[in-house]
């Protein structure tokens, strides 16, 4: 039986790496005695696939995992049992059975939505975002294993809007490409903004939160839980 679960990572544990998250959840499943299916082979591992690593330091209420269990069970029972033994700060928000025939979550997800909290880069941030998006290309330096590579991220930004304003900071919402090889980390976006505004990035200390991931299906955007 295949179950997908949506989970959150809060402030208390936001510095754990993707690998740490996986380990913590594997162990939570073991403590809760969930009958996870194991892969065959020399080094068997639990069949839980995690969609798109959350950047370290980012909180989230929109993480997903794709779980294979040995025998049928009630997804909400899985949620309750696992939640009672997860570290504080990680929580399953919802769980649901999905069709085993569907492709992997990672191959279906195309976009992710973030909320980002930054200081004002200029006085009029709405106008700034407009101008920022009006650029034909937004070229950034991306660090890769092979060194620094130039990348155009304009096409990877689908929306950008201010949703909250405080005295010295704002919060904006953005939908970014999040698929296979083309995955835009919101940190790179903020870097590009800072560069555009001619401001030293190091002083910003933005806060990132991932809200949701989206799949395009039957001509509309849905969340994995709506599959």
């Amino acid at each position: 039986m295949r179950i997908i679960a949506k989970f959150s990572i809060d402030d208390r544990v936001k510095y754990i790496s993707h690998l740490d998250t996986m380990r913590a959840i594997h162990r939570g499943m073991a403590r809760a005695n969930i009958p996870i299916e194991f892969s065959g082979g020399f080094n068997p591992h639990p069949k839980i696939a995690f969609a798109f690593a959350l950047p370290v330091g980012t909180t989230s209420t929109g993480e997903y995992m794709d779980i294979e269990v040995k025998h049928p069970m009630d997804p909400s029972a899985l949620k309750e049992r696992v939640n009672s033994v997860l570290p504080k700060g990680i929580q399953i928000l919802a769980a649901r059975e999905i069709d085993e025939a569907l492709p992997s979550l990672t191959s279906m997800i195309e976009r992710a939505e973030y909320r980002v909290n930054i200081p004002y880069l200029t006085d009029d941030m709405d106008d700034f975002f407009q101008k920022f998006l009006n650029q034909k290309n937004i070229i950034i330096d991306k660090k890769t294993k092979k060194g620094i590579r130039k990348m155009d991220i304009r096409e990877m930004i689908f929306s950008l809007e201010v949703i909250k304003k405080w005295e010295s900071r704002i919060e904006f919402k953005t939908q970014l490409m999040c698929a296979g090889q083309s995955n835009l980390n919101p940190e790179l976006l903020v870097r590009a903004m800072a560069e555009f505004a001619n401001i030293d990035y190091a002083q910003h200390l933005p806060k990132f939160h991932r809200d949701e991931m989206y799949i395009y299906r039957n001509n509309r955007w849905i969340t994995p839980l709506e599959l």
Binding site: R12, V13, Y15, D20, V56, G57, V85, K88, L205
Partner: peptide, 19 residues
């Protein structure tokens, strides 16, 4: 929080582990 965003392996200083 600000300095933990800058250092290597911030989990070392985070606590909040299970148990």
């Amino acid at each position: 929080d600000n300095i933990m965003g800058k250092v290597s392996k911030p989990t070392r200083y985070m606590g909040n582990e299970y148990n």
